[in-house]
Design a protein around this nucleic acid. Structure first.
Length: 508
RNA sequence: GGUCGGUUCGUCUAGUCAGGUCAGGACGCCAGGUUUUCAUCCUGGUAACACGGGUUCGAAUCCCGUACCGACUACCA
């Protein structure tokens, strides 16, 4: 039984893709990559009322950004298409009919309003209405109505749905790759609608039919689907089809409190919940995304992968390739994983340090241009190399490096108080004289010269260097000072000293 | 309410299937070190087996119960 691995991610285009959904897709993708299988994107748009324009494009763009690629799907095609359920509409009816034929399903003519009414009535008596073996005998369906009348109603176009005839009491034994054996008695289940009165299948039918037709080997999805696994299993059995393997992933939980991670948590705690920025076409409301917040896709994906899965060793920073290599469903945890924004930031920092200066420069150039700075990218690369390990995001680079591009427009008050001493003025004056004649103006050489001079004059290293830094940077921060002056150059260095001398003056 | 699932440091987790290292790593936090500054970095520290029974020489690990948490319970997916 060396069956080919075929997995799918099947979102419904009802809005932006939640990061939990991205993780689900990622695990599917990783398994496919690991096993040399196929990864399929299927759009589950059987609910016409919930269709949101732009959502499908958003989903595609999200995966493109994340570096998650599909072998088959709406956008790339494939031998099992179409991959959009609305385009497969004609397919489903025959399968629903097949189930009616075999006695596993039946027509039901109760209207949504009637059922609502019934539910309310039950609720008022503190009971729960369930459309099941117990109640179906009292309702309007082909199990109680005469065959002739059913035929007449059908012929006259009376709205109907097709429901699954759930056995009254039967143990369903199921195997979940993550949770092991799960047993449910059908008495706790209801006669789920398989085919809606609008002519579309529900998720349950479409999902099972498509997974079968597309020869899906593993259904890997969120834990919220666990309760409907028995129905799906029953469906496979009713059709007489082989069941795929199932794996229900643990939920992504909010950083604080309880419950699954929601958009509101992100708004409340200040982090994105979606991969990309999303603007609601209805309200115009915009929701932030990881991409726009400055996360590297590699970091986002890496962080997500480790939420619920680990390689079994102590590696944490993974590129997609090695992640796929190390991935296995056996190492996916059972319990919900709380999202930690701090750790997400840490992951981004790891990639910041890892990234080539060229790549960071490409990302940083637009920031510089926006500030009206025309700088050589060779120069920026050197700057980035010096400061990247001090930042978590590209947009933090400016704060760490502004003094490489513009002279200080003021001097940090506290720093002045602490480091601009009565001796400083004369010492800096001397330093300027020294630097005028220092040649070549490299980091190594200037450092050598300055340190030698400090020693000869028996000035305090700390006193001189801090005052010097203050004049060059405007504050007591930044990388190695001799690296800074070497980059900005001799002329600029001398100018900044001159300006600083003038601005700060001699302290009495 | 019912059904199903889950429970190791504050957080992500290793260890559980094949009982036996002071329960390991990472994030965060704290302290120290390196440094001309800040940051990075390095070193160290902090801190957990939900609870109660049982089986056993020995239980985070096996069994039972309890508690707590969550998901689901639509002509939504």
């Amino acid at each position: 039984m060396n069956q080919d691995i075929r997995v799918r991610f099947a979102p419904s285009p009802t809005g932006p893709l939640h990061m939990g959904g991205v993780r689900t897709a990622l695990y599917n993708y990783l398994l496919a990559r690991k096993k040399g299988g196929k990864f399929i994107l299927r759009i589950e748009d059987t609910d016409q009322n919930r269709f949101v324009p732009g959502a499908e494009e958003y989903i595609l763009e999200s995966f493109r950004w994340c570096g998650i690629e599909f072998d088959e799907g709406v956008h790339v095609g494939g031998p099992f298409g179409p991959y959009r359920q609305s385009e497969r509409k004609e397919l489903y009816k025959q399968y629903a009919d097949q189930l009616i034929q075999s006695g596993h399903a039946y027509y039901a003519f109760d209207t949504a309003d009637e059922l609502d009414e019934l539910r309310k009535h039950y609720e008022s008596e503190k009971k729960t209405f369930t459309y099941n073996a117990e109640s179906r005998g009292q309702l309007k369906n082909s199990l109680v109505i005469s065959e002739d009348e059913v035929k007449t109603w059908l012929d006259t176009g009376k709205p109907y749905v097709i429901r699954f005839k759930m056995p009254a009491s039967e143990e369903v034994n199921m195997q979940d790759l993550i949770r092991g054996e799960v047993v449910v008695n059908t008495r706790a289940l209801d006669d789920k609608i398989l085919f809606k009165s609008d002519g579309m299948p529900t998720y349950h039918l479409a999902n099972v039919v498509d997974d079968h037709l597309m020869e899906i080997s593993h259904v890997i999805r969120g834990e919220e689907w666990l309760p409907s696994m028995p129905l799906h299993i029953m469906l496979y059995r009713a059709f007489g089809w082989n069941e795929p393997a199932f794996a229900h992933l643990p939920l992504l939980l909010k950083p604080d409190g309880k419950g699954k991670l929601s958009k509101r948590d992100g708004d409340r705690l200040g982090f994105p919940v979606f991969p990309l920025e999303w603007t609601d076409p209805q309200t115009g409301e915009t929701t932030r995304g990881y991409r726009e917040d400055g996360y590297f896709p590699e970091a986002f994906v890496n962080m997500l992968a480790l939420l619920g899965w680990n390689p079994g060793d102590e590696r944490e920073v993974f590129e997609m390739e090695s992640m796929a290599e190390a991935f296995s469903l056996e190492r996916v945890g059972k319990s919900g994983a709380r999202f930690d924004p701090d750790k997400a930031r840490w992951f981004n920092h790891q990639y910041m340090v890892l990234k080539a200066n060229e790549e960071l420069t490409r990302a940083f150039m637009p920031v510089l241009q926006q500030k009206g700075l025309m700088v050589d990218s060779e120069y920026v690369q050197q700057v980035v190399g010096l400061v990247k390990e001090r930042a978590d995001f590209v947009h933090e680079l400016w704060d760490q490096s502004s003094f490489f591009f513009v002279a200080p427009d003021g001097y940090d008050e506290k720093a002045v108080k602490k480091r601009w001493k009565p001796d400083s003025y004369d010492q800096m004056m001397e330093l300027k004289e020294l630097l005028v004649k220092t040649e070549p103006f490299t980091a190594g050489h200037t450092e050598e010269m300055v340190k030698q001079w400090i020693e000869e004059k028996e000035y305090g290293m700390g006193a001189v260097m801090n005052a010097f830094r203050l004049l060059i940077v405007g504050a007591l921060q930044g990388p190695h000072l001799f690296d800074i002056i070497a980059l900005i150059g001799q002329e600029e260095t001398l100018m900044r000293i001159q300006t600083g001398l003038h601005e700060l003056g001699r302290k009495e």
